[in-house]
């Protein structure tokens, strides 16, 4: 029995995009970075959060009386009324969810033991066989719950299930580094090479990330690089050039996946009542083609998406 607990905010059975073959993708909560373009904001904090689907809220007030912290108030706007949650008062007790009659309130984040989570992903095992798939742990950042992730990887590997990690590469602990080493494949995000700009856009410097990347490369760990392309943030020719030059030297890098900016995450900011700070346009098709050609010039196998 393994009772180490971790917090998970989503599980997809049958993903075609998170690594080779058909995958079960587990999204862990908690991330050391705060990328301005983050499309999974519900993955940032390490505790459960209330999800508010405003369209369903009928402003009945049941949750207001149900909240022991008095964190919920009624908000009356031009388009009608709905509740709002004072997130600094919210303790995540989730009592409000039970009182909501419409389903407007829900929860991001659930705790699982390693065994419980393994039983859930194992249900897809037959699909891995023919497709050469497996489990992908993403998030959030999987090294952020290092002890849990390590145990989970071990459990999968004991059962001959391939494990990929979708990681930002930022970890400073010995256990976090172990997590990266023990996975079969890393989907390694590279958000920019200029340390200062990296701090501005993500909240942390990229020095540790680059160091980890080089060390893992030296150890021969299979790596697929994921490059989020966010116009105005990391798509300058200088950054792209520096990135391509670095990657061209890394022998463990099997492929580079360009991840063009998309707006699918917007709705989750609304659900968390957070502001969406970014105001950029998704990449045009021409620009995507241009970028592909750019990386190909460096002899790198490159594609759009994962």
């Amino acid at each position: 029995m393994n009772n180490t607990r971790g917090i998970v905010f989503h599980i997809i059975h049958g993903s075609f995009v998170d690594g080779p073959g058909i995958r079960t993708t587990v999204f862990l909560k908690g991330c050391p970075l705060r990328c301005v373009w983050c499309c999974n904001p519900e993955g940032q904090l390490l505790h459960p959060e209330v999800k508010l689907n405003a369209a369903l809220c009928k402003a009945c007030g049941a949750c207001i009386t149900g909240c022991p912290e008095n964190a919920i108030t009624l908000l009356t706007g031009e388009t009608g009324s709905r509740v709002q949650i004072n997130r600094s008062l919210c303790t995540g007790c989730m009592q409000c969810i039970a009182t909501c009659p419409t389903g407007a309130l829900d929860c991001f984040g659930r705790y699982y033991t390693v065994d419980e989570l393994f039983e859930i992903v194992k249900k897809d095992e037959q699909f891995y066989r023919l497709s050469g798939g497996g489990v992908t742990v993403g998030g959030g950042e999987p090294t952020f719950q290092a002890a849990f992730t390590r145990e989970f990887i071990k459990k999968c590997k004991d059962n001959y299930i391939h494990v990929a990690l979708d990681t930002c590469g930022y970890t400073t602990t010995a256990e976090g580094l172990k997590v990266l080493e023990e996975a079969d494949l890393l989907l390694f995000d590279l958000k920019g090479l200029d340390p200062r700009r990296h701090v501005a856009a993500t909240g942390v410097s990229n020095e540790r990330i680059l160091e980890n990347l080089k060390n893992l490369n030296a150890k021969g760990k299979p790596i697929i690089i994921r490059l989020p392309v966010i116009p105005g943030y990391n798509d300058s020719t200088a950054n792209l050039q520096a990135t391509a030059e670095l990657l061209a030297q890394l022998r463990s890098v099997e492929r580079v996946d360009l991840m063009p900016y998309h707006e699918y995450g917007k709705v989750k900011y609304e659900q968390l009542e957070k502001d969406y700070a970014l105001n950029v346009k998704p990449l045009s098709r021409e620009r995507q083609e241009e970028l592909l050609a750019f990386f190909r010039n460096y002899g790198l196998p490159v594609q759009i998406g994962g």
Partner: peptide
């Protein structure tokens, strides 16, 4: 979109086969 290239189509094929064989 989920079936846009050959790699994904192969996944699709293996998904159908696994389901039918299961």
């Amino acid at each position: 979109d989920t079936l846009k290239d050959e790699v994904k189509m192969r996944k699709f094929v293996s998904m159908i086969r696994t389901y039918l064989e299961a």
